[in-house]
Amino acid sequence: MTPGSTPAACAALLRRDLTLAWRRRGDIAMPVLYAVIVTTLFPFAIGPEPALLARIAGGVVFVIVLLAILLSLDHLFRGDIDDGSMELLMLAPQPLALLVGMKILAHWITSSLPLIVVAPVLASMLKLPPEAMPVLVIALLLSTPLLCLLGAVLVALTAGSKRSGMLLALMLLPLCVPVVIFAAGALAAAQEGLSWVAPIAWLGAGLAMALVLAPLACAAALRIAMDT
């Protein structure tokens, strides 16, 4: 790969973001730890009845994963804007949307992938039947990138303001609702032995759309944020 070409730029940025995340491993562990703690507390709070736990397991895991992603989302562009790296990215020969897409990919790998790995363990702690486990993983594989992409647009939109955390949570809520409904719907259908393809297909369609549109929206929003 010749330096300066589009693949080289994408690889360099991805590598940098992953390296940075690795140097701050503690920050990656935080959402996972949070998910583990909350899931552990659930049976203590509502009582250890296997039937009840199995019924709520799917919903609980999805909501916890969603909140854990929300925790880490705020840092997505903050560091780059504060230290001037964003200017470097904006003036680069490559389209900003593509570079932003790489940053979102790196964020998904560091924030969501560990959660997807521990999610089956969490779900089995809540007595989710083993036959529903593949559906849980598929639903998470489709819904977490979708949430990261939607969240990234909002992070970019609020990047210009100093205290964007609250605003971000408030704005992200309505966007999360359909994702949670489809993901949990697929899992509920699988638990009852029904076909779970339709809700998964909806998630896939949403993801396909967000993959194309969200980086473009992010790039436009970041330009506005830097225009101050």
Binding site: T2, P3, G4, S5, A8, A9, A11, A12, L13, R15, R16, T19, L20, R23, R24, G79, D83, G84, S85, E87, L88, L89, A92, P93, Q94, L99
Partner: peptide, 21 residues
Amino acid sequence: LGLKFDMTPRENLRLAAGLYG
């Protein structure tokens, strides 16, 4: 300065070169 403080000068340059050539 557009430098990542957790990375070395060499790594910082590598990103810039990857983007700009």
